[in-house]
Amino acid sequence: MSEQLLPGYIIRRGSLLERSLLLKFMQRTYQDLFPNEDFSHLEQTVKQYFSSDTPLWWVEEEGEQGSRGAGEQRSKESLSSAPLPLRASATHPPIACLWVGNAIDQVHGNRHAHIFILYVLPEHRRQGIGTALMQYVENWAIQRGDRQIGLQVFQSNKPALNLYNQLGYQTQSLWMVKFLSAEK
């Protein structure tokens, strides 16, 4: 079942059968930020954490629903030239995804939603889709009784940082890393 997210876009709940498509979106997310890296290890992340307890939503252009028309054919052709095949099916190519898991607040011990991935294809950015997805997940989290939402964002991902700051997200902790040499 799907519903309108924004004019021209619908959101639908993903299924566990779409594991490979989720993996492709995750790999594309990281490849956008780190183009020279190999992200085949993300398959293990999806295998370990993707379940009926970690909901997934897809965003599609509204015109993609229903019978096959000229607009749909154009959309399929543009996706077929993408570096990674991003199709749920021949008639419903997603243009964005949102995958949410659960976390435990380490200060108070409460379960809360944690955003694993929010990704919008580059050609669909700056149209309000990311903001609408964040509002959607906030409403979903409130309905299930969550009192907060967590996420992790790379410091170099300025567009995402700007979005989250505009929506009232605040830094609660910093994840710090020190790279170690394997040589002795």
Rank of each mutant, 00 (worst) to 15 (best):
E64S: 14
F34A: 08
D53F: 05
D53M: 05
R68K: 08
T45N: 13
E72M: 05
F39L: 05
E61V: 02
E61K: 10
G66E: 09
L56H: 11
S52N: 13
F50W: 02
G69N: 15
D53P: 00
Q65D: 08
F39V: 04
K47C: 03
F50S: 04
E60T: 10
G71A: 03
Q48L: 13
G63Y: 10
Q73D: 10
L79C: 06
V46T: 01
Q65M: 07
L42G: 02
S67Q: 14
L42T: 06
E77K: 13
L33M: 08
S40M: 02
Q44S: 09
L42Q: 08
D38V: 04
K47S: 11
S40P: 02
E77R: 12
E60H: 10
E77T: 07
P35M: 12
E37S: 06
P55F: 04
E62P: 03
N36L: 14
H41S: 15
E62W: 00
A82R: 14
P35G: 03
E62H: 07
F50A: 02
A82M: 14
G71V: 00
L56Y: 12
L79N: 02
E61Y: 03
D38P: 08
F50P: 06
G63V: 01
N36F: 10
P35Q: 07
S52D: 14
G69C: 07
W57S: 03
S75D: 06
T45K: 09
Y49K: 13
W57F: 11
K47T: 11
Y49M: 10
Q73L: 07
K76E: 12
G69A: 00
H41P: 13
S78T: 12
